[in-house]
Nucleic acid binder design. Structure first.
Lengths: 342, 342
DNA sequence: TTGTAGGCGTTATCAG
DNA sequence: CTGATAACGCCTACAA
């Protein structure tokens, strides 16, 4: 036979399949010698239980679905890594899907993962957060069989839909305050994907800090973007076209900051001497840019790990709640005092 | 009820479960009106077939396992993205696991994914390629039920173990030839993970080009590394300590090249004026470094897509073979003529 | 064209 | 402590 099953072992051990099952899962009421014999036999035959058969009967797949906007985004990859490690620690596996930043594709992916009976759903960088509360299978499940959903970096949008996030607003605020202390008065903000929760929160943090410090609040200083390398690259020109140009800029994420850095190097705009640049995320690469990027750290690993822990807790019936982690400013050398203050 | 099943529909439609099953899967012999009624009912009830029940009976899970060394590596993420998209196009899902570059963990992950009855296994950057031929479940399966394994950037190591790779040797050779044409005679190579196939192939390509062009072949020019940002960073010092220091360096991948670039900027070594740097992979970020990185393009998306296609083909019983894709040199500005030639 | 019955590998309930 | 027996949700001969 190609695959050894529990009945093969039962036959060879001269016991019933149920006894084998019990031995294998460490059931208390079974004689020690039988258990040892069965375990040895299973080992020898290279037996591995079928998770799908197990799922069918227990109703638990030991699987979480993860849908991400784009694995290629270092922030996303880092969070995914954290989630994978926490899942593995709990003997869970991850069913992976990508939305390509497309809301329809995201929901489609989520539904597909649900078809595989995932025990929970983790969504990194959702573009359609309010759709989850309306998914029939999430809505209509019996109280005891609800599938937890955790949204990363989004607010909680319904019961059984949890949220693990960083306090984006205060992150952005810290960055702007830092820039203000350095002497900058005219600070631009390159925003992230429009409609995105984290983008609007970071913008709010930026605005609040601008107000608090009495900085230039011209609306022209807020520039649209989508959190891509290209955004930063293209934005330098619009920054320079502003009159007067800002002396500092806070980017939605490190990716756009790196794009900006590249454009600045290309056009001969010295950073931080002529322009201070601050990123967001603290992806590994941000320490290796020229100059090294000052940025707001997001606890990416912890976010991923926490997301699976929230799922686990919800499944255990414990009261899981929305978690807000805090970040901090990582000062490197892409921001300094503005030119006129030197 | 929490989940609608095929028998719920059958009851409501006053037919047998098998009829519903047939209607749902477009079985030919069924009256059009019944099918329409059943489909409508299913739609209305929000019915979604249980993939696990289906798997149990059909023996196919419509799932591929993907084990990667580290998602956080941009090359890996890019390949994974390609694989995800191809899988989705074929209505397949990906079960994801990470090995953290650890051989034991890699095999453990592969076995775990096999427990979920994945229909195929894709391994990106394997560190234990020869173990797969010995996995009982892969070895002992009936001829018609073998699970295809595809190794990325590794040679084929057994039957039913396929390989999708780039011609790493010629990639490295192209890079060194280019550097040679630029006038470099003393070119260093920072290697990748020891024991890794792609590292040894790239090294072979480097050596061959060195020979072909009659360049300096001192063994000290080959420096150990692991393909991480840190490697490049730390290697600059050893490069500079060489007498005389090389005028150019080919890095195992873009990550180490970027680390090297950062160290060079930090220590005031102008690139490419004092040192030419060439990377490998052409990750998106390589276009945004300072200076933009000259690198060897790997067809990452195609590699991921091809990997799932090979699985699909193997499952269909078609003769799948090892695929070798070709790359090309992407010339940007991190390499130029050596100082003395200027 | 449709229904009946059996089974995929496992767990769980109930006897013994 | 152990063994039948019945599910879990679906598919697929085989029978009607």
């Amino acid at each position: 036979m190609s695959q050894v099953s529990i009945v093969d072992i039962a036959r060879l051990a001269q016991v019933s399949p149920s006894t084998v099952s019990r031995a294998l899962q460490g059931h208390p009421r079974i004689s020690a010698e039988r258990r040892a014999a069965i375990l040895a036999l299973a080992e020898e035959l290279g037996y591995r239980p079928s998770q799908v058969a197990r799922s069918l009967v227990t109703g638990r797949s030991h699987t979480f679905g993860v849908v991400v906007s784009d694995v290629t985004d270092p922030f996303v990859a880092e969070v995914l890594k954290g989630a994978e490690m926490a899942a593995r620690d709990a003997s869970y596996r991850l069913l992976f899907a990508m939305s390509n930043r497309n809301p329809a594709q995201e929901i489609e992916a989520a539904e597909a993962l649900l078809d595989y009976e995932v025990d929970g759903l983790i969504v990194i960088s959702s573009r359609a957060p309010d759709r989850y509360a309306r998914l029939p299978r999430l809505r209509d499940a019996g109280k005891d069989h609800r599938i937890p959903v955790v949204l990363l970096n989004h607010a909680q949008v319904g019961e059984f839909i949890y949220s693990v996030k960083m306090d984006s607003e205060s992150g952005a605020r810290m960055a702007v305050s830092y820039l203000s202390q350095l002497g900058h008065r005219r600070i631009a903000f390159i925003s992230g994907p429009s409609g995105g929760r984290s983008s609007s929160e970071r913008l709010a943090g930026y605005r609040r800090a601008v107000l608090e410090h009495g900085l230039d609040a011209s609306p022209e200083l807020v520039i649209g973007g989508a959190g891509l390398l290209e955004d930063g690259w293209e934005t330098l020109a619009v920054l320079l076209a502003l009159k007067p140009p800002p002396t500092a800029v806070l980017c939605y994420n490190d990716l756009s900051a790196i794009g900006l850095l590249a454009a600045a190097a290309q056009m001969g705009v010295p950073v931080p001497d002529a322009l201070s640049v601050v990123g967001y995320d603290n992806i590994p690469l941000s320490a290796y840019t020229t100059p090294p990027l000052t940025t707001v750290e997001q606890p990416k690993d912890a976010m991923g790990r926490t997301a699976v822990k929230v799922c686990l807790r919800a499944l255990a019936g414990e009261p899981a709640t929305t978690t807000v982690l805090s970040g901090q400013l990582v000062v490197r050398s892409s921001a300094a005092a503005p030119p006129q203050a030197q």
